[in-house]
């Protein structure tokens, strides 16, 4: 019966992560630190794309209108929401108190077993691919951002000024690179500009995704109520009839699923 509450919380957590990382990103760019700015831009894009992924997975699941097992149907919704907030690659359940990391084998580090019947395995590329399906070019843009956020050539471009080139009398071309001064502009390959434009046009749709997500709430509530009424109504007799109904409708149990 917590599924509807978790539905609301999943959105709040996803948005809070976007806000925190996004604020950091913006202030790094404004402070004239494009390398840390791009690193956080990549992270912001990852956090924002989780919402697209969540919408696509919910949409596909809610398209099943006549589930064979109403409880399994709600459990799957639960899993989709839980992955968006608590998804992991590292095996936290087993290692949360580990202090000897040197001896942790790969098999012990990786999260593979389900937790309480829920599969919480997640990697960010799933979300990036979902965003790419909605905004073509998003994955390429993400990979370009990675090239600038990792200690690769892109990161080197971001820490130097616009290079000065000249050809000497022998016809040899010289390129003078200098570590960046605090200028608000950075010289980068055209593909970087293209990546920023893709990110821009994709993030313009962020509010639509939030609306889309909110739009699934009535159907999630309906699925929870169906599961409660078909399989769990007897348990409702244990509750005070004037307490809020556990389905999350906001009505009192007596006038909601218990009725």
């Amino acid at each position: 019966g917590n599924t509807t509450t978790e539905f609301d919380q999943a959105l709040a957590f996803a948005l809070a992560r976007v806000v925190e990382v996004g604020e950091g990103c913006s202030s790094e760019f404004r402070a004239g630190r494009p390398l840390s700015g791009v690193t956080l831009l990549r992270a912001t894009v990852e956090h924002a794309s989780v919402l697209v992924h969540l919408c696509r997975k919910l949409s596909a699941h809610l398209a099943i209108t006549k589930p064979a097992n109403s409880v399994a149907y709600v459990t799957k919704i639960e899993e989709i929401l839980a992955v968006a907030v608590f998804g992991t690659r590292f095996n936290w359940p087993q290692n949360i108190n580990s202090d000897d990391l040197a001896t942790l084998e790969r098999k012990e580090r990786e999260y593979t077993k389900d937790e309480n019947g829920l599969n919480l395995r997640a990697q960010v590329m799933d979300a990036i691919d979902s965003a790419d399906a909605e905004c073509p070019g998003f994955r390429a843009a993400y990979e370009i951002l990675c090239e600038f956020a990792h200690p690769n050539i892109g990161a080197t471009w971001l820490v130097n000024d616009v290079p000065v080139q000249h050809v000497d009398s022998m016809g040899i071309q010289w390129i003078a690179r200098r570590l960046r001064s605090q200028s608000p502009d950075v010289a980068v390959p055209h593909a970087f500009g293209a990546a920023v434009r893709v990110v821009d046009s994709c993030l313009l749709r962020f509010r639509d995704w939030v609306e889309q997500y909110r739009g699934y709430r009535p159907r999630v509530l309906q699925a929870v109520q169906f599961a409660v009424r078909t399989t769990g109504r007897s348990a409702l007799a244990l509750l005070n009839p004037y307490d809020p109904c556990p389905c999350g409708s906001g009505a009192k149990a007596k006038f909601c699923c218990r009725a």
Binding site: G22, C25, F29, A48, P189, R207
Partner: peptide, 24 residues
């Protein structure tokens, strides 16, 4: 090479943050 403006990227991200903040 192209020149990108850091404040322009910050504006893109600020808009996202404003959208997300409004929804929380």
């Amino acid at each position: 090479l192209a020149t990108i403006s850091c404040p322009a990227i910050a504006e893109i991200v600020d808009r996202l943050v404003a959208d997300a903040t409004r929804e929380i």
